[in-house]
Nucleic acid binder design. Sequence first.
DNA 1: TGTACATCAGTGAACGCGCGTTCACTGATGTAC
DNA 2: TGTACATCAGTGAACGCGCGTTCACTGATGTAC
Lengths: 229, 229
Amino acid sequence: MSVPRTARERARAEITREITDAARRQLAESGAAALSLRAIARELGMVSSALYRYFPSRDDLLTALIIEAYNAIGEAVEEAVATGDTPRARWRAAAAAVRHWAIGHPHEYTLLYGSPVPGYQAPQDTIGPASRVPIAALGIVVKAWESGELAAGAGGMSDELTAQSTEIATQIAPGLPPEYVARTVVAWTQLYGAVTFELTGQLVGSMDPAGPFFEYAVEVMADLIGLPG
Amino acid sequence: MSVPRTARERARAEITREITDAARRQLAESGAAALSLRAIARELGMVSSALYRYFPSRDDLLTALIIEAYNAIGEAVEEAVATGDTPRARWRAAAAAVRHWAIGHPHEYTLLYGSPVPGYQAPQDTIGPASRVPIAALGIVVKAWESGELAAGAGGMSDELTAQSTEIATQIAPGLPPEYVARTVVAWTQLYGAVTFELTGQLVGSMDPAGPFFEYAVEVMADLIGLPG
DNA sequence: TGTACATCAGTGAACGCGCGTTCACTGATGTAC
DNA sequence: TGTACATCAGTGAACGCGCGTTCACTGATGTAC
């Protein structure tokens, strides 16, 4: 997608955006399973077959939405991380960003982290955008490590886990010892578990409202990683 | 539902079971969104309208499946807990039971813990069965506490969280101090976060296969709660 | 034990709905000379 | 600058599909006397 040069290319870019905007609106309202090309066409005052000039199928449109959503939550987290001035503050901000984005976009969150849409198979193009949040999370830990602020790590990792964690460090957290990688992933999955449970109502009647519990969990996980601040 | 006395009642019970069995099979294959009364009727050699003698609507059938599934995972966890002879062994067994049940029944797991099915509102009757897993998890901690084996707890809880945790303890973990309740819920959400991520492919390319990471997380969470063994 | 009536399971047709996708077409925009 | 042709967006009709739910009905099972 280069810069549009002709009127046609400009129109095409604009209408493509209108389609994904309408799709995102419908996704937000009714969820991915209810997303319908015909309804989108209706909203835009087009005939449903016209959408096929822009997306070869419903799945391709869904893929575009997934990529957009990963980028949106990734950006939210990256921005949050940038506001913190200690490792722990950055972690808190990142966790809150995930939670708030999820609460604000429950159907999009579900599209990314919930059940796979029946019959839909996520393609390669989503991998990059999907990595932004975990990379941002590990970035906090890398930075703390580089400035020598991290508390010493516990051991107890299997050889296989050490190998996997080392590989992850090589790719996206250069220099970080594997035990911190593993613990960050533990914290990261805890975060998403708590958010998912809040969203799907599993905490109703117990940790309800979920805010105080969430904040506590964030601190406990910061301790687990060894983040100072 | 008392014991069936007449042939009619026996037939009714049997066919009701056949319907939920067929429904569960379809759920396992294609997921909740694709669950269709007509397909179930077809499989049973009935006419679709006949199902309305047994379930007033598709949603009621879904509710029955949800209750069954909560009971299935609840029972799996309860049985696992019973096999452990130290608190930590019980926790390990419970965590593994959740993971294996989820891997073996991904669509059912998703039905319980993933995205809400569009338009479906879970009714009251699911609450009891849904509580079996958390009650079992807290049961492990209560038992360890009662025998004085639990490591001392960290503080740092807000008043609101303390109140919520105390209330939970009153209801399902009598005698357990609130800080253990809160930490158990942290561990519990971590467990589900890790399982959900494994199931939805979020760990592909990083902690992949997820087994070693999962085992590590289980130990880290056992440490967090303070479980001996 | 036999009969009259009530209950209930299952049938088959129909209602009304919405969906994704294909295809031949028209008319506007862009390109090459 | 003007003309001939190619590209492309959007139309409208159609295909073929499956769905949940309602309703009047038949015939079998159960109950009361």
